[in-house]
Design a protein around this nucleic acid. Structure first.
Length: 257
DNA sequence: ATGGTCGAGTATCGA
């Protein structure tokens, strides 16, 4: 099974690139973030034509997440499960695809340390853990895929010194991500790659992509039984090049059947 | 010179 995740930064603009990418990457499951679409505007028929069922959670303008699957989708949950404080933003959708409990997540950016947006980001990550605790079934493997807006370690940013005092690298954000992983999730990409200078996001500004100034903030986190089956992982930098690219590249991970 | 670009929508704001 091939599972992929991609922050597309407007699916309206990116649909041709997403269709092109599906055409050569052939993911079995593709999680999308920042569709920036209302549910009524989601191009589900375009994906159906490519052989995918899909589910979308969006409010238009900002945020918006989706899951595409070649296998039937079931048990869809929009946002956090019952019992948790509802999220005003559309940042999470979960569904079972081919026997895997998949979540597409778009963690809040945080904007600046100490801001209310930063506090929202930390509480959001805590709620995501409680969502997993409340909804997971011990027999079903879990894959939490998306834009976490946290670089797990210093080797995941192009210049740690430049990020001191910034979001994405602060100790509380990394602790919140580590707490989420402590529930029982492995960083699938790191199981196959230990090198630094491997990123998933590059700012559009200042030629950052061509200067290799990026961050690894998009992750596929998987539970133990899936972690043992990872055979291959890749950030497709080709998809960050060319005409009208997203500022994120897709991350794909392969699992043995 | 401490910016630089996108995408939302149409003035700025968010990333």
């Amino acid at each position: 099974m091939r599972i992929a995740t991609w922050n597309v930064n407007s699916l309206n603009v990116r649909l041709p690139r997403v269709e092109e990418w599906i055409g050569y990457a052939h993911p079995d499951v593709l999680c999308l973030q920042e569709t920036k679409l209302a549910d009524t505007a989601f191009p589900g028929f375009a994906f159906e034509a490519l052989g995918y069922q899909s589910v979308h959670h969006g409010g238009g303008r900002w945020n918006g997440v989706a899951i595409l699957s070649r296998m039937p989708i079931s048990d869809v949950v929009y946002g956090f499960c019952e019992g948790l404080e509802a999220d005003p933003d559309a940042r999470l959708v979960s569904a079972t695809c081919g026997g895997v409990r998949v979540s597409s997540v778009y963690v809040p950016n945080g904007r600046s340390l100490g801001s209310e947006h930063y506090a929202y980001k930390l509480s959001w990550l805590d709620r995501l853990r409680r969502h997993l605790e409340a909804t997971a079934d011990a027999r079903t493997p879990v894959a939490v895929c998306g834009d976490f807006n946290v670089a797990p370690e210093d080797r995941d940013v192009w210049n740690p010194a430049r990020f001191v005092g910034s979001t994405h690298v602060s100790e509380p954000e990394r602790a919140a991500l580590a707490h989420l992983q402590a529930w029982g999730l492995e960083d699938a990409f790191r199981l196959r790659h230990q090198e630094d200078r491997l990123y998933t996001y590059w700012d559009y500004r200042a030629g950052d992509f061509h200067q290799h100034r990026g961050m690894r903030i998009d992750l596929v986190l998987v539970s133990r039984p899936m972690a043992e089956k990872v055979t291959y992982a890749l950030v497709d930098r080709f998809a960050r090049k060319g005409k009208l690219p997203s500022d994120h590249a897709p991350l794909l991970v392969d699992f043995e059947d």
